[in-house]
Structure formats: C-alpha cells, structure tokens
Nucleic acid binder design. Sequence first.
DNA 1: ACCGGCCCTGAATGCGCTTTCAGTAAGCGC
DNA 2: GCGCTTACTGAAAGCGCATTCAGGGCCGGT
Lengths: 342, 342
Amino acid sequence: MQPRTHVTLEDVAKAAEVSLATASRALNGMRVTPQLRDRVLAAAEQLAYTPNAHARALAGASHRTVGVICHDISDPYFAAVAGGVMRVAGDNDLLVMLASTFRDPEREIAYVSMLRAERAPAILLTGSGFEDPRWERAMEAELKPYLEGGGRVAVVSRHRSLKVDSVLPENRAGAAAMARALLDLGHRRFAVLAGPPALTTVADRLGGFRDELKKAGITLATSDIVEAPFTRDGGYGAMTELLDRGLTATCVFALTDVMAIGACAALRDHGLSVPDDVSVAGFDDIPIVRDLTPPLTTVALPLPQLGEQAMQMALTENTGRRRRIVRLGGEVVIRASTAKLV
Amino acid sequence: MQPRTHVTLEDVAKAAEVSLATASRALNGMRVTPQLRDRVLAAAEQLAYTPNAHARALAGASHRTVGVICHDISDPYFAAVAGGVMRVAGDNDLLVMLASTFRDPEREIAYVSMLRAERAPAILLTGSGFEDPRWERAMEAELKPYLEGGGRVAVVSRHRSLKVDSVLPENRAGAAAMARALLDLGHRRFAVLAGPPALTTVADRLGGFRDELKKAGITLATSDIVEAPFTRDGGYGAMTELLDRGLTATCVFALTDVMAIGACAALRDHGLSVPDDVSVAGFDDIPIVRDLTPPLTTVALPLPQLGEQAMQMALTENTGRRRRIVRLGGEVVIRASTAKLV
DNA sequence: ACCGGCCCTGAATGCGCTTTCAGTAAGCGC
DNA sequence: GCGCTTACTGAAAGCGCATTCAGGGCCGGT
C-alpha cells in the first residue's frame, strides 16, 4: 500500500487529549481511569482507528498469524486438511495464512522465507516433501534459524529429512492393508496409478502396496505402474494410457482418490463399467468419494484431524526431548467400486 | 513469537564491517561497491539473516501480502475460486492470506480488521453477503477507512450494499435460464433446495428461478422450497425432508452443486434413481460434478476466472469514476441428471 | 597543482507502537 | 495536618529497517 497517511495512535491520543502511552493502555485494556478510557475509546471509534500491526509486532507484541503451506488448495485433500487447521486456529483466535505452492519446491521455500520474515509464530507444512535432497537441505537450512528464533513448525504427511513434529498418515501400512483387502476379494492382476516419484508419499504408498503383493507371490511389473500428476486429469491420462496399452489387470489402485476419480471417468469414457469390468481403489477418503457412483473403495485418512493435530502440536510446547510424531488413519474402506471375484 | 533475539541488519553490518545503511543498500540491490556488496551478502548468508518484514513495512517498504476472505475453504466452490486468485497473485509475486469465516459475519469483520491492521495492499471478499443491513453497514464502516487509506478491495459474488469493484456470477439470469431449460425438458412440478435466506445468492437464484417459472404460469409454493445450509449434508437433509413429506415434483433444483450432490445421495439412499425417478439440477459447475454418475445438469460458472478477475481488478487502478462490475457465467449445461419428459 | 563535481558511504531520523521509568496527585494512618 | 504508600499518567526509549543528508575520496578539467 502506498505510504498514505493513516490514523495513528498519536492522532487518537491528541483527540482524546491524553498522552500516547495512556491511549495505548486504554486500547489494550490495561488499568486506566474509566473516564479517560472512555474518551480514548470514543476518539478511536470516531477516527476509525486501526492499530498498525507491523508497528505493534515490531514493538514486541506477539502477533497471531500462523502460516500453512500446501501444494494446491484446490485439491480436496488439502482443502480438507486446511479445514481442520483453521478450526483449531479459529478456536485459538489465530489468523491463518494459507499458501499454495503448486508443487514448486522453489516457491515453497520462498513462502517459508516470507513467513519467517513476517515472524509468524508457527508454520505448517502439508503435503509430501520432495525426495530431492537438495531441496530438503535448503528447506532445513531455511527452517533452522526459524526454529532457533522460537518459531514452531509442524508438518503433515512429510517427514523424511525434516526433524520436526509430524502428523503422518499411515501410507505404507494403509497401502499394504489395501493390497491384502484386494487380494481377499480375489484379485491377482493389478495396475497402479502412481504420482510423481519425487514425492515421499508415492514412495511409501507404492512401496507398501508392492511389498505386500510380493508376500503373496505377486510381482508388480514396471509396465503395471503409470506415473502421472496427482490430479484428476493425471488419473484420467494414466488410465487412458493403461487402456491403450491393453489393460490386463482386474483392479486398478490409484495412489490418491483424486486420481481414482479421473481413472473412473476414463473407464466410463471407454465404455467400461466399474466395478464389473475393472475394480478401482483409491487412497485418502476425501469427502466426495462416498457420493460417487459407485462409491469408491479407499484407504481412509481422517483429513481434518490431520490438520487439527498438526495445528495443535504447533500450539503446544514440546516438553520431551524428541520430536513428536502422530500417525493417523490407514484403514481400508471397502465400497462398491471394487468387485469380489469368484 | 517470543521476543527472542533475531539476527538483525545491524549484526550483518557489523560482521561485514560496514555501516547499517550500506548493508541495507547491498541487500536491496542498490548501488554499492561490488567488494562491499559481496562482504555484506556473505555475512548475511553466513548469519542466516532474514529481514524483519514488520520493520521493513514500518519503514515504508510496501509489502506484498493480499488477503482473501471466503466462507469455507473446504467447499469446492471457494477452493476453485481461491485457486484462480492464487494463480494471478503468484504471477504478480504476491503472497495470499486466505481466511475462512465459516459463514460467521462477526468473524468476517474481524478478519477484515486484522487485514487492515496488517496494511494488506488488497482485500478480496468472496461469497455472498448477509442481507442483514446491520452487518453490511458494519462491513462498510470497516472498509471505508481502508479504501481511503489506499487499500484496494474487490468482491466476488456479493454486491448489494458494498460499493466496490465486483465480479458477479449471473445468478438471476442463470437461474432463469435453468428454469427455461427444465421447462423445455417437459418438467412442470418443481422443488427447490435453497440456502440460508440471509444470503444474497439465495435471493438472486431463487428469485430468478421463481420469476421465470411464473412467466410460464407455474407458481412455486412455499412448501416446494426447503431451506438448508449450503453444504452436502444440508442438501441431503433437505432432500430427505422433501421425500418424507411425499415428493410430488419431477425435478429438484438445488441452489448449489454441493447441495445437489447431497440431494442425489439422499435419493439414492431412498432407492430412487436420478434421473429416472427424479431429475436433479445444480448451480456452480464445480469441477467434480462432471465426474458424478449421472453427471450433473447445472448452471456453469467459470470459478477460477471469478477469482482471477477479482484479483486482477484489485491489482489494477480503477481509472474510471464508477466501480467496475464484471458479470460471468450463467450458462446452463444439460447433463444426464435431468430427464426429458415425454 | 588546484578546484568543481560526482559517487559512494555512514550517521542520523522516523515509521507507529509497547513499555519502562520517573513523576505527580490522591488516599491513608498517625 | 504531615509523611508515606498507592495508582495513574506522561515523557522517552527502542523494536529493525529504509532513507535522507552531509561528508569524503577520487576523477577530470584547466
């Protein structure tokens, strides 16, 4: 904003005919003679005075804006997590500054830097990290002075290298459980719709699924795994590719629900029925999937709770000497998108 | 954050053995002898220096965090709009501070106040306003000094009393067009799933729909309109109520897609088929509805564009003497959720 | 060799606020 | 009625930075 003149505390003090200090005290609810207080309050109201948060923060008053960084707020997954964060933040009278990185590590670091500059009391990082050690090191370097300066950091679904309080979905165990569930339904030939291999989430979910399959003597070939962006269109494209190559699997496991939705759309567009022709399973249990036709089989994650927990951790002092880790979710929910094979 | 000691510009200056002013200039890319500049930059790097954004803002440098206020970021409607806002903001190197009011007018005003205190260069208000003149007046009072101080404000889907640049969905015209489309399909008996009557959006959409019906000689009875929250569960509940009362309508018009999704779920749970037993239409065209089975007939709004336009308006000076108003969307998209009656 | 002018540096000022510190008026006991 | 405590108030310092202003080194011109 242009350096236009604003109504300042001094103006209010002058109007109320008191000193600057008294005006400040009156506005902040400290002990002041009622008569003076009223004069100050009236003057402030009259002049539409708004304290300058920057000056206030600079002068030592702690400020109440925490930062939340996610990959893409348009994604129902992050929207749900953010919803949880905001609930807890709201209960604690905190403002939430939400930033979307669009999966660009450079931008992510830039955001942390800005939040750091704003002296936000807490920063929440949501969404899987980038396996690239270069970025993880850069992020660590960015976070270290922040933590040393008294900042609080918590992460959701991301832990590899970052040594901070974490809320982790049971990615590996959940994927493994899904593998068992699908095997129980009689499936033996699988395809996987994976995300960018740079994401830790992909490694965990894919690994859990593959390892569990291997225990049953089933090996996932490279050609059974298609990588695509973690989006609806990514799922659509990956499924289409699979179809074009001649799908032999009876069941497709998408690493996220959003991708699964795209996969179902692709199948429908190819005249195939879910689950009669192909079974589809997802991961996350975003709210919408129970309302699809057929409702999607998935690994359930308590999305809002993920955010709530993280915010909670960022708000409470860690008295122990090690970082706190909370693991949530991972239960398979069988719905109608997966068929039982004879 | 606790008033812990941070690395300050003074520390950097001392380490680089230059004056504070020189350090500041070096860091901000002003003309400085290369040798000194390198010393300063090295010292800053070495100390992990982060400029204090508050001090910087206070000292006159304009800061780059715009505020976006919406009702509920978990709602796909707002998530999509916010996505558009963030795209434009990102292109302009702006940080976006997103706040969720959960439809609480008090909280909404509190957020504006905080944004004002932060001296955010722009504030975007998204989501319909509250018809209650008391709140609208309070909001106006809050915004006035902000605008006078050089702040920029733009609103999405909300205009009644706020005299600022606006991006408006074609609520009334869109609803009217939907009425005509449904009449063309042969429907004559309708029910409407409405939202809280306090929202301007409800008044516009309901009004447009009802008036158009009236032109065709059809009157919407009070009992044909059910009010419920603008949520999936709200739609589910309203539809259930309608069903319990004995539904006579052949077509249900939900004022938002999210409600329509809930309505479809309720119908399914009652063993009814969409569109064979009942046709369902929505409003907004949130991304997910094309992937539903059946895909939802709805009034399309270019959601991301709504946000982009608003951000754009907040970024560009209004050279004219009147507020700018952009109207977007409103086209009916017939999909498979509405049946053609003989 | 001397002076005017230019460019860069450093000291100092102020952004708006909170908070300490000292000071003054009022209230109390004796 | 005097001295002391108590309770507020006001002046002033300082948070970290950008920026203005004045001073000093160095160049070229004469």
